[in-house]
Each structure stands twice: as C-alpha cells, then as structure tokens.
Computed example of a mutant assay.
Amino acid sequence: MHIEIDDLTRPAIHALLQEHLDHMYELSPPECVFALDINALRAPDISFWTAWEGPLLLGCGALKQLDTQHGELKSMRTPTAQRGRGAGRAMLVHILEVAKARGYTRLSLETGTEAAFQPAQKLYASMGFVPCGPFASYQEDPHSLFMALDLSLFDSKK
C-alpha cells in the first residue's frame, strides 16, 4: 500500500467521494452533514491523500489547516468493498505524521453519532483522540461527535 498526495482528478476518487457524501446524507440530516465535496477539498488550506494498492483505491483522507497549530481531519473514507485491510489506520497515521511535522499541536475532527460511525470512532480513540467540544465554526449538535488529539502524545513508532 502506498499513500500519495492527490489532485482529485481521477474517476476512482470522484466515485469514492460521492459514496462518502451519499452515505453521510443517508445517516444524518442535511444540515448536520459536514463532509466536503471535490471542489471544497481543492481549497488551498486542505491537503488530500489517497491510499493505493497498485491500481486499486483503498481510501482517502484530508487535513485542513485551522490555524498554525491546529488542524482538522476531513474526508476519511475507505470504499465499502475494501474495508478491513488497514487503509484507514495507515491513512490516519500518515495524516497525524504530516500534522506533527507541520508543527500542529492539536488535531480535531467531527464525526457522526449513529451506530454506523462506531468503527471510525474506535479507530480515532485507538490513536488517542478523545471527545471534546465543538471547535472552529461547529456548533453543539446531537448528530455530531467532536474529538481531538494532543499531537505531543502521538508517537507513530508505537
């Protein structure tokens, strides 16, 4: 598996991001969906990566800069057919390493509260993320779980 910065032009990426958006809208009311579309992911304050095994897309993830020390994890997704292969964890570790190298001290995320989000919540917790309050422009919402990681506690060698 290799992870690369991505320009969001390949059809496989478009399909995966559409799967992600469709699933988010199935699970949460429209006003509570904070997943980004392709155009939003092209913003200058967002870096986007994909994980591949040869020509097979295994997942994606993004890092949004909130300020010089705080980033937000966005668009973590593994295609349904490729789950359980470790791509989500590999992508998360990659993004955490990049965030730490950029000098961020905190990485935050917003995820859903429905049962379908429990695997993601467990993955984040296993890496040291803990529940927190809303950050950036988010508001308290029963459909949102906010989590954060103090990056001084992250060690990719563990």
Rank of each mutant, 00 (worst) to 15 (best):
K157A: 15
A15I: 14
I5W: 07
P44I: 06
P44H: 03
A90P: 03
F117T: 00
Y124P: 01
Q139I: 11
V130R: 12
P131E: 14
I38F: 01
D6N: 14
H14A: 15
L41K: 02
E4I: 12
D141T: 08
R42D: 04
A87E: 02
M76R: 05
T50I: 03
M24L: 15
K157C: 11
M1K: 06
R83F: 09
G71S: 05
A40S: 15
D150Y: 05
P134K: 15
P119R: 11
R42W: 03
L57R: 00
L109I: 07
A35G: 06
V93T: 12
S28A: 15
H20Q: 15
E114G: 06
F135I: 08
D141P: 03
T113M: 03
L36E: 02
C32W: 06
Y138N: 12
A136L: 10
E53H: 14
T105L: 07
M24Y: 07
C132N: 13
K64S: 04
P55V: 13
G88Y: 02
T78D: 00
R106G: 02
L92I: 08
D150C: 05
I46C: 01
L149W: 01
R83I: 15
A62M: 05
A90F: 00
P131S: 12
E97V: 15
G84A: 12
E19T: 09
L8C: 09
H20Y: 13
S126F: 09
G133W: 05
E114W: 11
L153K: 15
C32G: 10
Q18F: 01
T80W: 05
V130K: 14
P44M: 03
P142K: 12
P11I: 09
A35R: 01
V98H: 02
D37L: 08
I38M: 06
G88I: 05
T68G: 11
H20P: 07
L27N: 07
H23L: 12
D155T: 12
L107V: 10
L8D: 03
F117R: 04
V33S: 03
T80Y: 07
K158G: 09
G59E: 01
D67H: 12
L27W: 06
E97T: 15
P119Q: 10
F154L: 13
A116E: 13
Q139W: 07
A87S: 14
L149G: 01
E97F: 04
D45A: 08
L58E: 04
P119M: 10
Q121A: 14
T111E: 00
R77I: 06
M1V: 10
S156Y: 09
L16Y: 00
L107Q: 04
A62S: 11
P142E: 09
C32T: 12
M24T: 06
I46K: 03
L66V: 12
L66C: 08
A101T: 13
S28V: 08
H20M: 14
L96H: 02
P134H: 15
S156T: 12
R89W: 08
A40C: 13
T111Y: 01
P79H: 03
D7W: 03
V98N: 03
E53Y: 10
H143N: 13
I46P: 00
G71F: 00
A12L: 13
